[in-house]
């Protein structure tokens, strides 16, 4: 299925949620589960304290969504797996 068998764990970054108290949620996944994504693609919108951030793919591969929209997430929580 994946080209080199590696799995990238895409997590909520320190930039999005700097402290342990900060939380946010996916507004929507622009690209769908199972899509082939490239590093830098705008894949989702993530909202922290009413500010929406565009999430760019940190790696290229097949997107496997692990966090559905509107669910509260904290720093380090898994957003998606990218099969590289």
């Amino acid at each position: 299925m994946s080209e080199n068998g590696k799995v990238f764990e895409w997590r909520v970054s320190d930039e999005l949620c700097p402290t342990e108290e900060d939380s946010g949620s996916i507004v929507l996944w622009i690209l769908s589960d199972g899509a082939k994504i490239n590093q830098g693609d705008i894949v989702a919108e993530f909202m922290v304290q009413k500010i929406t951030h565009e999430l760019q793919a940190p790696a290229s591969g097949i997107l496997h969504i692990k966090l559905e929209p509107e669910i509260e997430a904290y720093k380090g929580d898994l957003l998606a797996l990218i099969l590289m």
Partner: peptide, 21 residues
């Protein structure tokens, strides 16, 4: 080119967008 227009994107993908976007 917008990121989703990257020539390396390969096959076209459906994108779920909001009205404002």
């Amino acid at each position: 080119a917008a990121p989703w227009e990257s020539p390396t994107s390969g096959e076209s993908r459906s994108r779920s967008l909001t009205i404002c976007r």
